[in-house]
Amino acid sequence: MSTPTPRAGLGLVQICLAGILWGTGGLGVQVIRDRVPMSVLTISAWRMVIAAAVLLVVLLALRQLRGLGTLVRTHPTRVIVTGCGTAAYQALYFGSVVAVGVSVSTVVSLGLAPVLLTVAESVRRRSAPTLGQVAVLVLALAGLVLVSLAAGAHDPGPHPTLGVLLAVGSGTTYAATTAIGRSLTHTTSPLTLTTATTTVGAVALLLVAALGGSLTTGSGDATVTLTLLYLGIFTMALAYGLFYAGLRTVPGSAAVIATLLEPVTAALVAAVWLDERLGVAGIVGTALILVAVAGLGRRQPEPAVPPG
């Protein structure tokens, strides 16, 4: 296989970093919920609000607000769909976790996205995936299953059928949002795109949380406030900025495989800070995902889309 271009290599690194940052989010949510009875929907809403506020301040400081206005004016539908989709797949995933447990939710939602995008890209190119692409995908999915099982959803959840349906919805929305977001990366900067979609997502989640009567705050708890700031700045603003920056040179299917470093990071964080055992399955699964991500850097360039 050919060596990736420097830009593609940098893009893959950026997306891997985004996945690692996302993987630390679970610990942050647990820290908050150990101190205050805040729902995951409310945490997600405040996380996006903080991220949007920080990103808007950065845009203002860099005098790039005009680019934000241009993006919203020229691509309003795609910006709204991407922003609402980002909020939706997170909410659907959290709902699935409550209904069916972590393992099934993670495998279905995160496993479905790369499959859907690989199929979509093959249809667009009018050619089957290469043997290398299939091998990377199989390795990644096998690793995901093992890591998720090691994460140990000992409680299968009270509503397994509903949970699987929510996970399917989350994975499908994640795939669609990635594809639409990637189409916008070539028309604007990652910072502008992240700001626009995060602001839309924040408004959507705030409305849902408010209508559900769950829009609470940390009641002045310093630890909760600092944790929310971390979640908003690092796992949302910075992570999505890196993700969209990487999407400019990395295909969507490869990007979502690279972000499987999220459950790997979450498992490692739990092992270090929460004293949860990773186990043989977790170690093997982590190794398989790392091999798959390494394989992404050796994939052949994507074939051009046939004319017409």
Rank of each mutant, 00 (worst) to 15 (best):
P251I: 11
V250A: 00
V108L: 00
G85W: 06
H154A: 13
A202D: 02
S189H: 11
A51H: 05
P301T: 04
T249F: 00
Y93A: 12
C16Q: 09
H186W: 15
D221T: 11
S96E: 08
C84T: 13
I50T: 10
A99I: 13
L229E: 05
V49G: 03
V58T: 12
A245Y: 02
L117K: 01
T227K: 07
R47M: 02
H154G: 14
A237S: 11
T185M: 06
G308P: 00
H75D: 14
A51F: 00
A179M: 10
W22Y: 15
A153L: 08
T161E: 14
L205F: 08
S219V: 15
A204F: 13
G157R: 06
G152S: 11
M38F: 09
V136Q: 06
V54Q: 07
D275K: 14
L116K: 01
P263Q: 00
L207Q: 04
M236I: 03
T86A: 15
V57W: 09
A99Q: 13
V264T: 07
L274R: 08
F234T: 05
R277H: 12
V200R: 05
S109Q: 08
F94W: 11
S44L: 12
D34S: 00
S127Y: 01
A266L: 01
G213E: 08
A153F: 11
G297F: 04
E121G: 07
P160M: 05
L92Y: 10
G295R: 06
E276A: 10
T225Q: 15
S39G: 13
G69W: 01
V145Q: 07
T265E: 04
P129A: 04
G218S: 03
V100G: 09
G212F: 11
A270T: 05
P4K: 02
P307S: 14
A128S: 10
T177Y: 02
L207W: 04
G212E: 11
L56R: 12
R78N: 04
V200Y: 10
V54A: 14
T192A: 01
Y240F: 15
V256R: 00
L146Q: 02
L228C: 08
V134G: 03
H159I: 11
A87M: 12
A120E: 03
T194M: 03
C16N: 05
T161C: 12
L149E: 14
T77I: 14
I20L: 13
S122P: 03
G171Q: 09
V264Q: 05
A281P: 02
L68D: 01
T82H: 08
L231S: 07
G19R: 06
L260F: 04
L144Q: 09
T195F: 04
A167Q: 08
V108R: 02
L290S: 07
V136E: 01
S148C: 02
G23Y: 01
V119Y: 05
L166Y: 10
S183Q: 11
L242T: 09
G111Y: 00
L205M: 13
T194Y: 06
